[in-house]
Nucleic acid binder design. Structure first.
Lengths: 234, 234
DNA sequence: TTGTCAGGAGTAGAATACAAGTATACAATG
DNA sequence: CATTGTATACTTGTATTCTACTCCTGACAA
């Protein structure tokens, strides 16, 4: 018989649901950068009252995914080149550390790899499936899961949470990039390469792949920005 | 005529006030780790209704400074050794990057240093004053300001925001460490050394000081934990 | 034509009301 | 005496109401 400490029990709340739902909508661009929404609008959209909607909005505001203009409304944040660059730096630095830690953990406890590898392979499979079907949103979800699994063995939940938050901003541009350049297959190849680098405990190669993985996205940006200028801010 | 974009105007809201106030109370240990509070209690304490209090609590929950147990109450988070270690890693990695960026910015635009230096000197002065008066809370506030100013020239607001959030957890142990070991003067000396290293654009020495600055705190931890075991969790 | 001013519609902030889960004291029961 | 059912007070989650602010529009005067 195993006990789960009560303090860590996760409850389902409408507020949490609204947050997840809206966050997905923003990242997938179903809510478009620059679009104005109102609490009452989201209220009817999500089928709940203002209180949990507000809670979600405040959380998204803290992540700079929405702007709140008191007494005026809520604007889905424009994609900001400054923010993107800042986020890239933070992600690159932290994800490198996570990768180093993960590989160190794997060298110390090789058994960790069994479970991780299996999950990662499933993520890659899910991505290939999504790519075949042109399901961009599903692809990003699997991408998210992939990076979470790869970094998982580091066991640094704080670091991983920050990286996850940073990735939200990059993923909006990733979305546009995929939509415009149809480069999902290349992304999967990079993931695959990263997977094998970690499998061989080759931190240096892993870091190299990871860095290029993010920088390549940066290189696509000008083209994407030219195609969707109204999505971009300063 | 110059326009201030409306979007960046900062409004005063009770929610924001409650967040700042409670965060300070937690970091200064006026709200003790492990202490139970209720929304209605905070309502009377802060002189406002539940709505803004809840807003603040949710934000603090996201920073893992409080635990929310639905239908049971709110617990000020215990100091967790796991969290401290995770936060130390994130802070060390990011603050190193910030320092590198700041020094690069200073080398590129030396004029930045004028303003920064002046502010930093004021922070150091404020810290010395607080240390003389034994004002631990004031000392920490000045400490916070010091690090913000030193990292300021990097202009990476995202990174600095994450570091600020990480520091909250370390500052609670810093508080206990100062209370127990009366080591404020040593901290000021380290700040002074860091200031001069940055002034001389010596990134390597700056990083070294910074790393030891944080690690020294880690070394004090066992003694502090022995003295205040009830403040500590897993 | 242009400027301005009043008022209404719509917004988010804040307060309050209601719902539902949890702890606790205590009586009933074996 | 130990255990269990239950009433009750208290908690947070959610809904609703009230408030004050912003923006727009249209009448009206210069």
């Amino acid at each position: 018989m195993s006990y789960q400490p009560l303090t860590s029990r996760e409850y389902f709340t409408l507020g949490r649901y609204a947050y997840d739902e809206l966050r997905r909508a923003i990242i997938s661009l179903r809510l478009e950068p620059g679009q104005w929404v109102s609490e009452s609008e989201l209220t009817t959209l999500l089928g709940m009252s203002r209180t949990p909607v507000r809670e979600a909005i405040r959380a998204l505001h803290r992540e700079e995914l929405v702007e709140v203009l008191p007494q005026r409304g809520i604007k889905i944040a424009l994609i900001s080149m400054k923010k993107i660059e800042e986020v890239r730096v933070v992600r690159e630095v932290l994800e490198s550390e996570a990768l180093r830690e993960a590989i160190a953990a794997l060298q110390h406890t090789p058994a960790l790899w069994e479970e991780t590898a299996e999950n990662v392979i499933q993520c890659l499979e899910a991505q290939r499936r999504a790519a075949r079907q042109g399901d961009l949103e599903g692809f990003l979800a699997a991408d998210e899961a992939f990076h979470r699994e790869i970094a998982g063995p580091s066991r640094n939940d704080t670091l991983n949470a920050v990286v996850r938050q940073m990735r939200a901003h990059l993923n909006r541009t990733r979305m546009l990039s995929m939509r415009e350049l149809h480069n999902m297959d290349a992304l999967i190849d990079e993931h695959d390469a990263l997977f094998h680098a970690v499998g061989e405990r080759d931190a240096a190669r892993g870091l190299d792949i990871l860095t290029h993985h993010v920088r390549r996205l940066q290189e696509d940006l000008p083209r994407v920005k030219e195609r969707y200028p109204h999505y971009f801010g300063p």
